[in-house]
Write a protein that binds this DNA or RNA. Structure first.
Lengths: 248, 248
DNA sequence: AAATTATTTGCGTATTTATGCAGTATTAAA
DNA sequence: TTTAATACTGCATAAATACGCAAATAATTT
């Protein structure tokens, strides 16, 4: 059998099943796994499939890369890098939704070995791109705009968990009014998230400092760490420091 | 034997078998392999076959290799339209993952008012785009490749549900071996999905008919409806009809 | 028909490609 | 962590290919 024939066969299989195993192909085509691996490598280089450990996947899975085209503000990149350093191997980390959180996930080193829990669909999708982290999604009714799970069931499930860290992509934060948000259902979940973590970290670009929304999530005192793109000594951050919040 | 005659013979062989080996031709035409190579090269330059290492392939064969990389969208569109008609206002519908299911979700009319349950992240994301449908995600540990929830918790939650319809994007289906799939964890969930629905519908492009994977999800008898892009009267579907499965 | 010219073919050799194997490193899973 | 599966590296081998050249064949001219 000619090499090109094998390639056609492999692509056909990929087309049908979205994935192939090297071991299967080796048997079906009666060539060594070495050869299959080299075939898959070539087809990968052509860009018509994605080689992975043990076989290959269809390209049609890869739509998360589309999201990468969205420009991320440099502020969020800075915040992500600061936040990243708090996460250590073996930790159990709770993540909310939002673009800042997505940026954090993108910046996670590939060798990091930790478990992440989230209620946000986009966050979950981004987490799935990383090789070594386990992803747990707490599901229930999904809220359309926020693309996240909400409702009593989620709050209940969160109450059964104790995480090392909770990262909140924060909408509005203010020394007087604490953390505030827009939607009641989101607030319920964020509260539950804060309760179930040993350490609560808020990620907020400085524009969001000292702004207030309609509904309150928590007092400022419930926060342990605040991460912005600003320098730790920035004037804007002083009031938060005085409340005993760690500034990074 | 004249060169032109050899060329005609080679093209004839290509038409019949879709491929030729230089070594074969050399014997059949009693000329050296060098000559055959030169022949194939000429015919390739003429554009009427594709020369490869060891012989040549027909152009149409080469076509399928390229063509298959653009996954079978039109077939899936047809399937989606057929499936759509089964869903009525007020129904509770269970969806698996896969590109065919995504296509179904895209084709749902905006005025449809129903509740959808899924375990697949991409499916959930697509469902959230629609204005009037409620989306429930059953969460737990997420499987990286399949981008879906798996595990005992999911099976348990599914067992507490009774849906009107369950749509399965099917990997492999065969009259003898039933519905089969690759990963154990996916199979557990698919089984649970089938149990929790009054009516189980399999969506499968015809390429997937009569293919078998390693692990079994269920007997063919557990299926109520099979939807493909083929006409209901197609020969391929007869065996399934005889098993009492409704063909759409 | 003979001579000349152009084309085709086969052969030897050097090179490239395809494949499998063994040992080791890496990765995934229990 | 341990264990099994998978991947990588370097190497060996065989098959396929490219190339130059000379012999053979075909086509053309004289």
């Amino acid at each position: 059998m000619l090499k090109k024939e094998r390639h056609a066969y492999i692509m056909h299989e990929i087309d049908i099943h979205n994935k192939v195993l090297s071991s299967d192909l080796s048997l079906q085509l009666t060539v060594s796994e070495d050869t299959i691996r080299r075939d898959l490598q070539e087809l990968d280089e052509k860009g018509i499939l994605t080689k992975v450990h043990g076989g290959a996947l269809s390209k049609s899975f890869h739509f998360t890369l589309q999201n990468n085209t969205v420009f991320s503000q440099p502020e969020k990149k800075i915040i992500a890098q600061k936040a990243r350093d708090l996460i250590k191997d073996g930790m159990l980390v709770l993540l909310s939704g939002g673009t800042t959180i997505i940026e954090l996930v993108k910046s996670l080193p590939p060798e990091l070995n930790a478990t992440f829990i989230t209620v946000s669909i986009p966050t979950a999708l981004e987490l799935l791109n990383h090789p070594n982290i386990e992803v747990i999604f707490i599901g229930n009714k999904l809220l359309k705009n926020a693309q996240m799970s909400v409702g009593a069931e989620v709050v209940q499930r969160l109450s059964e968990i104790k995480c090392d860290l909770c990262f909140l992509g924060t909408n509005s934060i203010d020394v007087e009014n604490g953390i505030t948000d827009l939607e009641l259902e989101v607030i319920e979940v964020k509260r539950a998230m804060m309760r179930s973590a040993k350490k609560v970290v808020s990620l907020a670009i400085s524009k969001k400092l000292n702004t207030v929304q309609r509904l309150k999530v928590s007092d400022i005192g419930a926060l342990d760490v605040l991460i912005t793109e600003l320098d730790e000594s920035d004037e804007l951050l002083k009031p938060y420091k005085q409340k005993g919040i760690e500034i990074i």
